[in-house]
């Protein structure tokens, strides 16, 4: 999972236009990844086993790891960065190294869950790159999981309905928000989380070939607000608009 600024409405950039100005912002977890954490907890509750959470981020990202452990994740792995942004190639490489080290020490993971895309960078590729490097099947955009003996059935929205994929374990799934409704951590959960282990590693920053030059805000779209009226007197204008939208035929 990834620690991201909790933006609300208008985004402000730093003077060098390299980052979002977070001086007055809190931080949270990318929503798809928040759902992935919740799904991991639910899978363990339903089928047994254990779960771990991993993030690549600055020292402060331990807060998000503890949030995840407060929900029921047993342990955490923190790939500590100096705050510089990592591109998706480099991020995937660091995660692969960490997964290999974890599996060498504690045995293989049955499932690696990712968010479908990070809220901030929207790269859509880290989970797939990890799956490729580890030679595991990967289904993206998952909104439903059913574990079977040595396989997992993953559902996602597709053209005209749901697409169903049945793949062998171990596997990689990238999840989309909406697969579940993440729970809130309890106070005892938060207290327990502080005692759970966070394993730290400091990977070396690298570039993967996609180099950010600068950030910029999109040009404002001109918009106009028209007050249609109040109560019943607004109805004729509403009907006009519905006709214009093709919702109502004359």
């Amino acid at each position: 999972m990834k620690r991201v600024p909790a933006t609300s409405g208008r985004i402000t950039l730093t003077a060098d236009r390299q980052e979002i100005d977070t001086r007055f912002l809190g931080f949270t977890v990318s929503p798809h990844e928040e759902c992935a954490v919740e799904e991991a907890v639910r899978l363990v509750e339903a089928h047994g086993g254990t779960s771990a959470v991993l993030t690549l981020g600055p020292e402060a990202a331990v807060e998000q790891l503890q949030d995840a452990m407060a929900l029921g994740i047993e342990r955490a792995v923190h790939l500590v960065t100096d705050g510089r942004e990592w591109d998706p190639v480099a991020t995937a490489e660091a995660i692969v190294e960490a997964v290999r080290a974890q599996e060498a020490a504690a045995g293989p993971f049955d499932l690696l869950l990712f968010g479908n895309e990070a809220a901030d960078s929207g790269d859509y590729q880290v989970g797939i790159r990890v799956a490729r490097a580890l030679d595991r099947p990967c289904v993206t955009g998952v909104k439903g999981i059913e574990l079977q003996d040595d396989a997992v059935e993953a559902r996602r929205e597709g053209p005209g309905g749901w697409e169903v994929f049945r793949i062998a374990l171990p596997a990689v799934l990238t999840l989309k928000e909406g697969i579940n409704l993440p729970r809130y951590p309890s106070i005892p959960g938060r207290l327990r989380a502080k005692k759970k282990p966070v394993e730290r590693t400091v990977p070396e920053w690298r570039s993967g070939g996609l180099e950010k030059v600068r950030l910029k805000l999109p040009s404002e779209r001109e918009s106009e607000v028209e007050v249609l009226g109040t109560g019943a007197e607004a109805a004729p204008r509403v009907v006009e608009i519905l006709k214009a939208l093709g919702l109502v035929r004359a």
Partner: peptide, 13 residues
Amino acid sequence: RWGGTLLEEAVLR
């Protein structure tokens, strides 16, 4: 980025 509320200029090598 950010679902379109922010843009990134980048180079691809």
